[in-house]
Simulated scan of single mutants.
Amino acid sequence: MGRDEAGAAGGQDRSGAGGGGTVRRPTEVGSTAHGPVEYRLERRGDDVLLVLHGGHMRAGLALGEDAFAAAGLSILAPSRPGYGRTPVQTGPTTEAYADAVAELCDGLGVARVAAVVGISGGGPTAVVMAARHPQLVRRLVLISAVGPLPWPGARTRAGGRVVFAPGAEAVTWAGVRLMLRAGGRPVLRRLVAGVSSAPGAAAWAGMSSADEVMLLELFGAMRSGRGFVRDLEPAPDLCGSVTQPALVVASRTDGGVPFTHAEALVAALPAADLVVSCAAGHFVWCSPDWPGIAEQIVAFVRAPFR
């Protein structure tokens, strides 16, 4: 396993901004029979959260984890195929990648995870992990997650295949960062409004200045690699095969992953509860009710296992 020195150099913990506390953190690469998997393992207590981040994210970025760290939960966050240093070949299918992550856990001495947490585009992979490896995964948590409905719309899928294609995505993100440096808060608010169905200023209602700092850091660190184009393809629906308790967190004004996905997940998973965030869009961490929701998640993953 090799440490990501670039991540280590930029890995000073500047967390604490808003609910998400995005920072760049060092990663390693583990070897599995399926191929290499980039990961970040932060050991604290015995309870481990296996965190599968969404689109444009990788293992070296921590989003929405501060409350879990404060509660003493360990975090294992692998990069999904095509993101960071996990090649597409490690997970030619979602099932194959789930098997690779299970092998990674075994190699790291993680025999059981308190929950697999699927965020946004990482939701389908989390569902497959829970369904395919019930001996490893005790519970399932889905946050602003893509569910068993078609996603995204045809226009978004077509545009995403162009602007986030390998090669083009570097130019796209360079342009985003240039606009943020030149335009500051107004540009950030336009980006936030793009993943909210709330009208006008309501799209960033409740967002604090610390949240804005966190989001500026987030957008400054995102890359799509080869992963996001893969995320645009249909994922297997194994919701009916999940036997573990599940908790689904979503906002009714999410413009990135519509709230209907949360409703479909709750309907399709055999034992799921829904927590509705008052966030003004996709970023549920940037909402006054996030600390309370995070407490519910911690209580859920630490409840006695039956």
Rank of each mutant, 00 (worst) to 15 (best):
G122C: 09
W290D: 02
A280P: 10
E233F: 02
S241G: 07
L49T: 08
E42Y: 05
A210Y: 02
A158D: 06
T86R: 05
M129Q: 01
R223N: 04
R138E: 11
L136H: 09
G194E: 08
R157N: 01
T156K: 12
A303V: 14
G21M: 08
F283T: 06
S197D: 10
P270V: 09
I143Q: 02
G167V: 09
P199V: 15
W173T: 13
I119C: 13
S224E: 07
Y97C: 12
A246C: 08
A182C: 14
D289R: 01
P124I: 03
A205Y: 12
D289C: 02
A67T: 13
A154N: 06
Y39K: 15
E42W: 10
E169S: 13
A69I: 11
A100W: 09
A154Y: 04
G16S: 05
G82T: 10
W151C: 05
V127K: 01
R252L: 07
M1Q: 15
E42Q: 08
P166Q: 07
G54R: 14
M179K: 15
A203E: 12
L215Q: 03
A131G: 04
A115V: 08
G123C: 02
P92A: 12
F68S: 09
W285Y: 12
A201I: 13
V127M: 02
A221K: 06
D254M: 04
M222F: 00
G194H: 03
W290S: 03
T125L: 00
L136A: 07
M179P: 13
L49A: 09
V187T: 15
F300R: 11
V248R: 03
V195E: 10
L149D: 09
A264W: 00
F283Y: 12
A59W: 08
P291T: 06
R25G: 01
V29K: 02
L142G: 11
F300T: 14
V141D: 00
R190F: 14
A299C: 02
S224V: 10
A170T: 13
G200D: 07
A67V: 14
Y39G: 15
V128H: 02
A115W: 09
L215V: 03
G55Y: 15
G225C: 10
A114C: 15
D254A: 04
A115D: 05
I293G: 01
S224Y: 09
D289L: 02
V37T: 08
A8R: 04
T94D: 08
A9I: 07
M222R: 01
T260P: 05
E263Q: 01
S144A: 13
A145Y: 05
A126P: 05
A210T: 04
V275W: 05
A158I: 06
V195M: 13
V23E: 03
L49K: 07
W173Q: 14
A165F: 01
A246S: 03
P291A: 02
L73R: 06
P304V: 12
V163E: 03
E233H: 05
D231K: 14
G147Y: 00
G292E: 08
V37C: 11
L140K: 04
